[in-house]
Amino acid sequence: MIHLITGGSGSGKSAFAENFLVNLGETKRFYIATMYPFDEESHQRIRRHRRMRSEKNFTTVECYTNLKKLQFPSDSNVLLECMSNLVANEIYQEEGAGRLTVSAVLAGIRYLADMVENLVIVTNEIFSDGMDYDEETARYQEYLGKINESIAAFADRVTEVVYGIPITIKGDKMRE
């Protein structure tokens, strides 16, 4: 199963995604961490996320670019967090896919989805503030938007998390 989870900043989407994976059962859990720790604020964010999942038995694998280098057992449940960081890394880091980011990321997602039992992907809504951005930022929005749209098309479930409340966009509605 592929489950795409989206939401705004501070919406509780990560906690929801982690709990969703935990509720899938005791199968081995992996966490693909994509945030590159480039300053104190990102270190703080990473520490906060580590605290959040410390009791949930995840094995953390750091991956800033190229999902295809990852290997997991076929019966594992995997959480990728989060797509917005991965896309930024692919665009801006030297070893990233650059202009080929959209196709590289989608190929990576399909590769993982074929390998593991359940793949949960956290992404981010960065499209609704009504601001016009410079060309580079607009390209980032475009790439992330295309990737979200493409994953949603082949995902089994798409959920938007609004202040901790899951809203089903695609798939059967969840029961509390």
Binding site: S9, G10, G12, M131, Q141, V162, Y163
Partner: peptide, 28 residues
């Protein structure tokens, strides 16, 4: 409802929208 845009450049703006989100999640 905040937080549906590009990550703001200013540290205070980032803190404001994230703090508001976390608080609203608690209130919800």
């Amino acid at each position: 409802e905040l937080g549906y845009g590009v990550v703001p450049v200013e540290a205070f703006d980032r803190k404001y929208r994230e703090t508001t989100g976390r608080i609203c999640t608690k209130l919800a």
